[in-house]
Design a protein around this nucleic acid. Structure first.
Lengths: 362, 362
DNA sequence: TTGAAAGCGCTAACAC
DNA sequence: GTGTTAGCGCTTTCAA
């Protein structure tokens, strides 16, 4: 820096002193690099952000100095100047205890990787599901992040509407389900998994195995994701000419619900296949079978959804629909990149296909 | 920022103008608030960081203005000035597929909550287990975070040595196991769970239930955590005068290992209790029992470690040692707070007690 | 108790 | 192609 930083040093002579500054404690700055390379600060900045502008040997010289000093730009200074933080906000809600879907792990990790490749980091923030807005608002106002990844779009997701009209950048894991009555449909980029197709796959799999009386154990009707999955079962059954009468039950997603519903279904309809909306519900079903001395996969086939660690480790192994979470994360990162570059997102919505992992339970 | 920024306007009277600045686009700044409250920027800053300095009514006035405008300080500017980011770095490694411990969810969430209460956020960054240092180094040099939470201290954790000599602030989830031979032992703050005590609890539980031939299914001997847990089984057995001869096996932590080891143990020693180093291994054991037509909890008792979602949902339910992850996270956050405030951490190491969750498998 | 000045490290806009 | 200037929004002196 030295003489370069003339700001305020109107008097002559005094400014000189600065030159000999013994590189104050702390990491090197642009000025340190500039001094070492014998160029101005701006040239160093260009070497980093716009290398094409420099002459070849200047560039080499600067890069040398950067490497020698182990220089990394100060992020705060860059943020203050450019008004971009290179941070992506990810609201983090409490994991539900006792449920089988700890799938966020896979998703989050890929998201971290993918965003890092585009030069971003992931910032977690606690978000109270009741008052989601306050968490976002705080992030936005303190300009803490450039964009958000919204994952919890299923409960009427007020945060999407909020972020939209707030003008915030975000991408969603989950379709825009609702609010069509409100007027215009949301147009933000989203990526989702085709749950109906996954459940249809599972149902076809059972039908192919010779099952004809196949029941659906779903969530309550107010949950669009659950209804979507149910539609997959329904269409598969109808497509193959099988009856669905009194074969569909709904309830909260607990194991206990799965257990009771299974007992009731067996008493009433003697199904030979149970297609479940989640691994948790499927585990409840397996427990009911166990209580009756039945064996899943031999006496009654069971399928779940999520390919959770439970499905993978239980015996007999639980056939389950696996979401391509890594692909979801990468697709979201790609959309973020476009969004952040103010480039148009040509295909805002993307529906990915899950796969069926067949195990002993079917 | 127009005329508002008086820098350089040495002339008097002009400063007044500041008031009429039409609030440029973007979120409100200190200056916006100051204008509205009719005070200087500095006073607003004091109101936030040092409210005791202000007269009561001035403070009220400023707070009014802050609330009205919904002002939040710009984090980048504050960071640049104070050299603290209010960010905690958390290296995020890929979850292992097929294992039963997705316990990080609980831990991470509490960490996010606890650090938020102290005014910090959690920044995830991908860390290649092979070359952990580069990830940390990058964070440090760009002054992206104030401190780290290191979670993966078990494999000889080179990152601890590295961070220590690098002078970085960090706390660890996990005891400083190794490197005593290197010279001085690490003195960084850490929190850990007493695995030996947990396994001893499980073993005593089985002994109390009348079991006498109780086997240990552990990890390979190079894993300190596994050896610690094994010591719990060993001491419980010896303390009650029971033999451990040929009842201890070790291997990788996979389900398949648990399955095979169980078959071999039953053939060789006919144990009536199996204490396992993890839920994953326990699931392998349960599978082996299943294959032999035996029922866990009736014919042979099984215990696991982690109280994972698998333990909670499988039938029969798996008795398991539950780590107080929420407590761990809070204790770590507390230590971070001390560390970041440059206050002494009076009790750097803390060993928390796990609890045994008894289910049908025992 | 309040205000003015300086500057953290960086980059955008312009001069040379 | 390279250097100069100005300022992002904040806090830390220091003066009034």
């Amino acid at each position: 820096m030295a003489r370069g930083d003339a700001r305020g040093t109107t008097g002559a002579g005094r400014g000189r002193r600065r030159t000999e500054r013994p590189v104050p404690e702390g990491p090197p700055t642009l000025a340190t690099v500039a001094a070492r390379a014998g160029v101005s600060r701006q040239t160093v900045s260009n070497a980093i952000n716009n290398p094409a502008l420099l002459a070849e040997d200047t560039l080499a010289k600067v890069e040398r100095a950067i490497a020698d000093l182990g220089y990394s730009p100060n992020l705060a200074a860059r943020t203050l100047r450019t008004r971009t933080t290179r941070l992506i906000g990810l609201p983090f809600e409490p994991a539900q205890e006792g449920t089988a879907n700890a799938l966020m792990d896979r998703f989050v990790h890929t998201l971290v990787e993918a965003t890092r490749e585009m030069g971003y980091h992931v910032l977690l923030f606690a978000s109270d599901p009741e008052e989601a807005e306050v968490g976002y608002e705080r992030m936005l106002r303190s300009t803490a992040v450039d964009a958000f990844v919204v994952t919890d779009t299923y409960r009427g997701h007020p945060q999407v509407d909020y972020l939209q009209q707030r003008g915030a950048l975000f991408v969603a894991f989950g379709r825009p389900w609702s609010h069509d009555d409100d007027g215009e449909p949301p147009t933000h980029p989203w990526v989702d998994v085709d749950g109906a197709a996954g459940v249809a796959q599972a149902t076809h799999h059972l039908i192919d195995r010779g099952h004809e009386v196949i029941a659906w154990l779903g969530w309550t009707a107010d949950q669009p994701i659950g209804e979507d999955r149910r539609a997959g079962w329904m269409s598969a059954m109808r497509g193959r000419g099988l009856s669905t009468t009194r074969l569909s039950v709904r309830g909260d997603g607990t194991m206990e619900y799965g257990r009771r519903a299974t007992h009731a279904l067996i008493d009433a309809r003697r199904p030979t296949g149970l297609v479940c909306v989640s691994d948790t519900v499927a585990m409840g079903a397996m427990r009911a079978l166990h209580e009756r001395g039945l064996v899943a996969g031999r006496d009654i086939a069971v399928t779940g959804f999520d390919d959770s660690q439970v499905a993978q480790t239980v015996s007999p192994g639980l056939t389950s629909v696996r979401q391509p979470l890594e692909e979801v994360a990468r697709a979201l990162a790609h959309r973020l990149e476009l969004l952040l570059g103010h480039r148009p997102v040509e295909e805002p919505g993307l529906l990915l296909q899950p796969t069926l992992v067949v195990r002993e339970s079917s």
